[in-house]
Design a binder for these strands. Structure first.
Lengths: 166, 166
DNA sequence: TATTGTTATACTCTATAACTATA
DNA sequence: TATAGTTATAGAGTATAACAATA
């Protein structure tokens, strides 16, 4: 028979938790009051679905993000991608190398700076990115199912207020 | 002189990105349309502030979460904490061991199950958790500054709708 | 046979130092 | 001297397999 846990503050050992029972309930009231707790759970939930649905494309969230930045900004440099996506330069090297080896991304000499190289999508990269975008849009619909269009806009607006700071 | 990046779809190399300039702008329009992008950024932002402010207590988010579950559920088992917080049992071992070595958490024999042990906060653990809770509440105010009380409730409600599924 | 707590381990993600080529 | 790209590496975080003790 399942038994509810003792509320916080009850004498230790008076009403201990019941292990083993699949329906044993553990309270997380204080955590539930924290915005960070919900933001993290929402983020992990969305990332989990993203990983599943993007697996056929061989794209992790960071790969898709990098492709998206290159697609929108042909000739962008590694350094600019790092700034835009908050990726440290050493960690971007392997990401770009992988995309380059898959012939999705082209490296061209930068016209103004011999140290840098301009990144571009190959034709195959453009096709893959286009298809991945379609799935990303489906994912968006899935993540925000149960939310009206107005609620989706509200949610993004409020999230931006949380993390955007001067 | 700063120059804006070429819009997506412009001929490759026609208007390349300008590296080096601190104000070179890279567009991330599609990513900006994705809920997961904003949820992740909000989560990372809040976690970052949490790490800074909880450092004096020697508590990472996961440590605070575990303390919170034990505080609210005296006698809870490791397995129950794993279920409540989505932590894998092998990864919880070190967390509990650390809290136990710091004498913040007590392990007591479980009254009903010889395999399990009931976890409790020590007096020192209760004091530390109480102080950490106060800081967590300040953090919450900081994270949701610029949001009205109604907006805070709305944000949490909408986030729950995103990740709570049957 | 199933579960609790545990060890060992591997893989990913993230972070720092330092090097080279160029500006 | 400062910056772009890179290497090597260290530290978290997260994942699976397998074991002893108990149910």
């Amino acid at each position: 028979m399942p038994r509810r846990l003792a509320p916080a503050g009850s004498p230790d050992g008076a009403t201990p938790a019941t292990p083993g029972a699949a329906d044993a309930t553990v309270t997380t009231d204080f955590l539930q009051s924290l915005l960070g707790y919900h933001a993290r759970r929402a983020s992990l939930s969305i990332v989990g679905v993203f990983l599943d649905r993007m697996a056929p494309f061989g794209l992790r969230p960071v790969d898709f993000s990098v492709l998206s930045v290159i697609a929108e900004n042909p000739g962008v440099t590694s350094r600019q991608i790092c700034s835009a996506l908050d990726i440290l330069p050493p960690n971007l090297v392997g990401i770009i190398r992988s995309l380059h080896e898959r012939q999705l991304v082209l490296r061209k000499p930068h016209p103004d700076d011999g140290r840098a190289q301009g990144l571009h999508l190959s034709a195959a990269g453009q096709r893959l990115y286009r298809d991945a975008c379609a799935v990303a849009t489906q994912l968006e619909d899935h993540a925000s199912r149960g939310l009206t269009a107005a609620q989706q806009r509200t949610l993004i607006t409020l999230l931006r207020k949380v993390y955007e700071r001067a």
